[in-house]
Structures are given as C-alpha cells and as structure tokens.
Design a protein around this nucleic acid. Structure first.
Lengths: 330, 330
DNA sequence: CTTAGCACTCTAATATCTCATGTGCTATTA
DNA sequence: TAATAGCACATGAGATATTAGAGTGCTAAG
C-alpha cells in the first residue's frame, strides 16, 4: 500500500503526462504538493522502486509505468463526468429513433473516434443466438444461385454460389422447403448440427433433393456463424499522437489494423468496461485498449477503443459506458 | 520531339529512379550511353529545360518530373511481360471456378497489393443496370422490418428499418405485392422513377396500402442506387515506400483512404488501363493511380492501384490488364 | 522527515567540418 | 559542330563538438 501523498503524486504524474506527453519533473510538482522538490524526488524514487514510475533516461523526469497506469486506473482514477459537448454530439444518435442498430454503432464509432483521436472498432453481430426466420434460394442463372437467410433480429446474410450442373426450380424448391422445415425457429449456432444430423440423412436417401445445393448451403451457414462483422473508424487518428511518430511503429500498427484475424481477437468476453494497458492489450506495448460488450435483445457485440497508453482513461471510460448503456437500451 | 539519345537517356533515368528512389547522376549513365559524363550532363540539361527532368537541389542528380513520367508512359515504356511468379499467384484465383465475382475481386486486390506493395481499391457493383428479380419485406417486430431486393445478377441488398406504428402482415403483403408487380424486371436505375410515378399514385389513392412502408422502401432503393461498394487492400503498403516516410504525408494519405466520399471519386469512366500521374491523380502529388474498369455481363466496377509516382508503370499496367481481362471473361 | 545545495547526467538544439557526389562552364579536341 | 576533359563550386549527409536547460541523486543540516 502506498501513502496518501504518494497516491496523490502518482495521480498528478499520470494526469500531467497524459496531458503533455512529456516526462514530469519534481519542480513542477512541489507547488501542488506544497513541499520541496527534494521531497518530491524522494517520493518519486520510492514509486519508481515499487515499479509504478519509470524514467526515460538517468536524469529525466518520471513517466508512469504500465503498472503505474494500472494502479491509477484501478485505485485512483475517478471516471470523469461527461462534458456537455460530448453528450450533445452523442445524443444526436441516441435521440434519433429511426436509426437501426448497425447505424447507431457506426455513427457512435465515428463520433467517438473524432472526439478522442483514437481508433474505434466494433466487432459484432456474431448473431449466434439469432433465430432463423426464413431461408430462401433464388436462381440467377443455370449454375449460379443466391441463398438468403433472415433471422428474427432482422439480420440478413446472403451468399452467391455456383453449382456444377443446372438445377431445376422444382429441385430448388424441394430442397429449400426441406431446409426451411427443419431450421426455421432454430438458433443460428445450432443450424449446422441440425442440417448435418436431421436433414442430411433425408437428402442422402432421396434422389430428388439437391445434394450440391445442400452442401453449398451448409458452407454458407458455416461461414455466417464463424464470420464476424468488423467496423473501424479513425484508423489514422492514432497517428496524431506524438508517441506514434516513428514510421516503423506506424506501419506495425496499421498492419495490425488490416489483419482481420488479429482484430477478431479483440472480442470482449467480460462485462462492463474493460481496460487493457500496454502489453495487456496484446496489440502493442505503447497501446491501450478499452472495450465493452453491448447486448441489444440478444444481439451481442464489442466496441473497442484503441489509443496510446497515455490516454485519458477517466474520460474514455465514461464515454464508452455512456454508449454501451444507450445501445443496450435501444 | 526529342532525339533518340535523349529518349534513351530519359528511359534510363526514369527506370533507374524507379528502382533506387535516388536522383540519377551523369557518371552512372555515361557507361551505358557510351559517352562522357559531360555529354550526358548537356543532354540532361536539355531535358530539364523542356520540363522532363528535375533536380532536388542545385547540384543533385536528376529525377523525372511529372511530365517526364507522362512522356515515359506515353512514348517510351513498353508494358513488361508478366513474370512466371506473378502469373502463378494470380492463376490461383482465375483457375478456381467455384469463386464468385466478389471473391475473385477481393483476392485479386490482396494478391496485387502484396505483389506490388501498393494499395488496391475496388469500387464497384454499382449494379445500376441490374434488373430487379425479387423484392421482399419481412417483419421482425411490430415496428421493425427488413426489406430485401435481389437482382438478376445475384446482387442482394437488404435494409432494416423502423416504422412508427405496427403494420399487419396483410398490409405488408399487399404493399410488397404491389411493388413487386411494378418493379420486377426493371433495371435498378429506373426503379425509383417507376415507384414515384406509377406506384405512388395507387398507394395514395388506396387506404389499404402502407404509405410508410412504401416511403421507407423508396429510401432504401435510393440508397442502394447511390451507394458504391468499396473494398481496399494493403492500405499500409504505401508506407513502405521511402517517399512516404514523413508522418504528415502518411497521415494525409491515410486520411484520404478513410474518406469514403473521396475514394468514390476514383471511379473510372474510361476503358482500358488509365494512368494518372502525380497531380493528375487528384489524390496527392507524390502518388500515381492506375485504374481500369471491368465488366462482367453488365456488372461494372473499377479497380484502382495507388502507389508512389515512382512506380513500376510497365509492370503494373501489365498486371492490371491481366486482371481486367480475366475478370471480364469470368 | 524535510530541505537546501551541489555535482553530475542527459537531451536537444546548434554550429562546424569533411567527404562524396554531382553540376555548370569553358577551353580544347576530333 | 558535337563531344570531351578539366576545374571551380554547390549541396547533402554524416560525424563531432558545444552549449543551455532541465532534472536527478546524494549529503549534510534543520
């Protein structure tokens, strides 16, 4: 446990460094703490010993370490009240009832990325527990078909695919009717096993059903259930931060933004607002990720904000919380 | 008109600069041209006078000017033969018959961006001349509906929207049947006027038709016809080029990549392979854009490659031409 | 426990120097 | 007349030195 004064010192250093991006020296602090710079130095030295502060070189001021930020977020920081300005901008979304969920999310990403100069990512609509309302297959040409699936949450997926030989409208109708009969009312995540164990035996026994169409449909379902919908806003914002002025750094971060597999892993499993600082983010040591999961009538998704470790935790957490709550109650 | 030797000199300088990104000096050239460096310098000086070459500072070697690249592309360059390696990689796409157009395009973008270290953009499926095959509206909840439209080319668009009051299944069916009756078989670009002038009067006269649903559907069509589908691959590749090592430059380019309105303007109107050098690209003076339009049974789109002005024009043009031809014959 | 004082460290900005490369010009050559 | 050799000059890039400023650690005294 650290003393009252040490706590206050850490708070000042973290907040000052977040504001200025420059190491904080002892002189700047002694006024606020009402003691001499030497005393401040002693305390700083202690906080460095226990790993909460760091130096950039032997005689520089202090900056918070990863552990320092963590201590600050967990024990010191108080979520900042929303400013009227931030609130106003976000309310243009939530007060507008004609917007559909996906629009609400996209607009939220855009506004927050602009407000914070960070990169916002939404991973969502995994729609696993959506229930199938309707399946349809529409022939386009002799060998090309479109399959459409609509869920009870209004989610629509479609897939264009080819078959080797022509299929007659009757064959299509029979097969699709059969599929519909079994999968309507089934949650998406159970559709594949239902198709495999209940529908496939029937298809195999009966010549009139289209095996090729059925297989293509299974692939489609498989992709839909494993696919995640990624949205991103403000990818270039993070470059405005002084810590990302090195070209190699920029490149490595942008490459990660482009790597869908990597981005998918950001998905949040916990509830509430979660903060991952530096290496905890598994993204980059100079980056923090603040995430939250939303849930609108069973449609789940994650909103993640990516910024420098030197980020306004108190403000961002409030912002994301506000958005999460508003989306949840959509 | 410039002399044979001057032409050769320009060719050497352009190609050498493309390879090394360093200004080309006279000494390096006199061996190839079999004359003294002084002679080369005289010729260089002439090419500079007529605006084909530039210097980075008073006593540097020469680099091609925008006009120099233009002259090179129009009059000197010979499209390079495809290397076996490039060919092989691309054939994995075009030899695979089970791929649908959108996959073919996405994979082409990925491969070419990797092959060239440039950014690839596809703008497409504007689908204006697609013909409507089917329109469907599915109720999700009392006030939430999904509209789906399928075209004869297998293009599917869907839109989730809200209405103020509940709508009965009968009202939906009546309205959708009416819409279907008039728009099936109509090219997308004509649907809106058909709705306005043929369907709207009927809706207005008859109480049983759902005006709100109809209006929402019109908005949906309006968005579909004005929307363009943007795909991008290798956005961070361009940073690997030495001319983009300045953070501000990087930022300004990445911001343009994020600006959908800006990207939409890249759409190509002409046929063949089109080269826009530097300021001609209207993107950035240090950037060249090489575009081409593809057309598969009426589905049109543009593929654009964005790279530094110092780009391997001869290779890229061949690559894009190969892709265009293969997509066109899909 | 706190503080004043002092020697020491390190960065960042600036200036200086040198070297290699390349130019323009002029007189000379074929 | 076109090509060349020679030479003075310009510039960027890299190495090195200098300086001012900010900040530290440590010690001894309050």
């Amino acid at each position: 446990m650290i003393s009252e004064r040490q706590t206050q010192l850490l708070k000042i250093i973290v907040e000052e460094y977040i504001k200025t991006a420059k190491p904080v020296g002892s002189k700047a602090i002694c006024d606020i703490l009402d003691c001499s710079s030497a005393t401040v130095r002693n305390e700083m030295s202690f906080l460095e010993d226990i790993g909460l502060l760091e130096k950039t070189h032997t005689s520089s001021g202090r900056i918070p370490s990863e552990k320092g930020y963590r201590y600050y977020v967990d024990n010191i920081m108080v979520p900042k009240e929303m400013t009227g300005d931030d609130m106003l901008k976000l309310q243009t979304i939530f007060k507008n009832n004609s917007l559909v969920l996906s629009d609400v999310i996209m607009k939220s990403l855009e506004i927050v990325s602009e407000l914070t100069n960070c990169t916002l990512i939404s991973l969502g609509n995994s729609s696993m527990d959506n229930i199938v309302s309707k399946v349809e297959v529409i022939p386009i040409s002799r060998t090309n078909l479109v399959a459409i699936i609509v869920t009870d949450k209004g989610h629509v997926e479609n897939r264009n695919f080819n078959v080797d030989e022509g299929i007659s409208p009757l064959e299509i109708k029979q097969t699709v009717d059969l599929i519909n009969k079994y999968v309507v009312g089934t949650p998406l995540e159970e559709v594949l096993s239902k198709l495999e164990f209940e529908v496939k035996p029937i298809i195999n026994e009966n010549v009139q059903y289209q095996k090729q169409l059925f297989d293509a449909f299974c692939n489609f379902i498989n992709d839909v259930t494993s696919e995640s919908d990624i949205k991103m806003s403000g990818a270039s914002n993070i470059l405005k931060q002084p810590e990302f002025s090195d070209t190699n750094k920029i490149r490595s971060i942008l490459e990660k933004f482009e790597d869908k597999e990597f981005i998918k892993n950001i998905k949040e499993e916990e509830s509430g607002i979660n903060v991952y600082i530096g290496s905890e983010s598994e993204f980059d040591d100079d980056v923090s990720i603040i995430k939250t999961k939303y849930n609108v009538d069973g449609v789940e998704g994650t909103i993640a904000l990516i910024g420098p470790t030197r980020i306004e935790y108190d403000r961002i957490i409030t912002l994301l919380d506000y958005i999460k709550k508003n989306i949840d109650s959509e």
